[in-house]
């Protein structure tokens, strides 16, 4: 699955982060290659979401190195990081109540050419098209997740950070999100995924990293999954 010839798109080295006084990331190091789907696994509180937020620049203090296409992002504000070509879909989805569905969809500005068109987003998520005038937060949980993903695909960002996109959703919608991730991969998007749902992750991921106590403790490719299942159960405590 993994191709050594793929270039490294995101290189995170010795990333440390703090929420106020508490030190939550203790030197996270990993890389994501262009066109890959990489999943961060780990128990609650292991630092997965914090890692995404630290990459995106929306956490108070961070040190270390985050390189995207070779460019150092660590000193940049989150709006500049977004402009570099990264897009973030938060765990709580972040649908705006004071905006209708269309406004939510069109909110993130285009940061680079080459994103999906609005028509293509509707093709992916036909439900959204029928509810353009609804208040964003009146949508069902599944539709909100589609909106949250759909709106960042328009921006032209090549690296998409998805934080637990399947949390709390019905199996049929989880399947739809799985198909979406495959489609994005085939279009050349690169995806960094945080998942608690290991079974879902195994249907989409090329590689895994396992986090514990704010560090990456293990990493393996999807092909090595069988060999690592025992160990993984240990890590995740399932």
């Amino acid at each position: 699955m993994t191709d050594a010839a793929l270039e490294t798109l995101l290189l995170v080295e010795d990333l440390q982060a703090w929420y106020g006084e508490s030190h939550v990331l203790h030197g996270v190091t990993f890389d994501v290659r262009s066109g890959e789907v990489v999943t961060l696994l780990g128990r609650n509180g292991a630092g997965k979401t914090t890692t995404l937020k630290a990459v995106m620049g929306i956490i108070g203090t961070r040190t270390g190195s985050v390189r995207y296409e070779g460019r150092e992002l660590i000193g940049l504000a989150s709006n500049q990081i977004a402009r570099a070509g990264l897009a973030f879909c938060p765990e709580e989805r972040g649908i705006f109540a004071s905006l209708d569905v269309e406004e939510n969809l069109l909110l993130p500005p285009e940061v680079r050419p080459g994103g999906l068109t609005t028509a293509q987003v509707f093709e992916l998520f036909p439900n959204l098209k029928e509810r353009l005038r609804s208040q964003g937060t009146k949508l069902s949980g599944g539709e909100q997740q589609m909106l949250a993903i759909g709106r960042i695909l328009r921006t032209g960002a090549r690296l998409v950070l998805l934080d637990e996109p399947t949390e709390g959703l019905a199996p049929v919608i989880i399947q739809q999100i799985g198909r979406t991730i495959h489609m994005l991969k085939s279009r050349g998007f690169t995806i960094l995924l945080v998942e608690q749902n290991f079974r879902f992750a195994s249907t989409v991921a090329d590689r895994y990293y396992v986090m514990e106590h704010g560090r990456i403790v293990d990493g393996f490719a999807n092909a090595e999954l069988e060999r690592n299942v025992e160990k993984l159960h240990d890590y995740l405590g399932v």
Binding site: I58, S78, P90, G94, L99, E103, L107
Partner: peptide
């Protein structure tokens, strides 16, 4: 308007709007 949508969104969740690339 679009500008107004940025304002309303930033009123609700400035962190996320900023992470979309808008200079909040």
């Amino acid at each position: 308007t679009r500008l107004g949508a940025y304002l309303r969104a930033a009123t609700e969740n400035p962190t996320l709007v900023r992470a979309f690339g808008i200079n909040v």
